[in-house]
């Protein structure tokens, strides 16, 4: 059975007919060709497909496309400005938090959800927030540093005491 849904992806509206079993990940990758969202396990265990659905981090491999009618979706492709990376992206690059890069889009989206919700997150909150995102290359160390540095910048800019 086909369902007609209207979603806004990275600011652009799309009206699409989707099958009952089609996942959001599949729609993003196959139909909208937004292949920045990765598939590592297709069972919600690795977080590589994490996108923000109405601001909430979701493993898009587990989200049926038919259930997100009307939703606003942000993928990794929608994060950077025309000329500038998002500060979080910049921090990942500068801290060497990227090796193979396959976990990076999902990892960035999970961290974005965290710092949006909790801009003064502690290290243990950061670890908790990315514990659904597997990275096999970095040992997470530089990823945690990259996110911490954004938190520290926020605290400095907003005079929040550590």
């Amino acid at each position: 059975m086909l369902h007609k849904i209207t979603i806004k992806v990275n600011g652009e509206p799309h009206s699409i007919e989707v099958g009952s079993a089609e996942t959001l990940a599949c729609i993003l990758r196959e139909r909208l060709r937004l292949t920045g969202t990765k598939l590592g396990c297709e069972s919600g265990a690795c977080g590589a497909c994490c996108v923000l659905v109405d601001g909430v981090p979701r493993n898009s491999c587990l989200v049926l496309a038919a259930t997100v009618d009307g939703a606003t979706i942000l993928t990794i492709e929608g994060l950077a400005g025309e000329k500038e990376l998002h500060p979080l992206q910049k921090s990942f690059v500068e801290h060497g938090a990227i090796q193979c890069g396959f976990c990076t889009p999902g990892m960035v989206m999970s961290s974005l959800a965290l710092i949006t919700e909790n801009p003064t997150a502690t290290e243990s909150e950061i670890k908790e927030a990315i514990s659904g995102n597997i990275c096999r290359c970095t040992g997470y160390t530089k990823i945690i540093k990259a996110i911490t540095s954004i938190v520290e910048e926020y605290k400095a800019a907003n005079m929040v005491e550590s």
Partner: peptide, 23 residues
């Protein structure tokens, strides 16, 4: 000197194409 890996920008913006991403 420490420097980010080449390709880091492509990876962090979702533009880096892995085999399954090729059209």
């Amino acid at each position: 000197k420490s420097m980010p890996q080449l390709g880091s920008i492509e990876k962090v913006t979702g533009k880096a194409l892995y085999t399954d991403d090729l059209q």
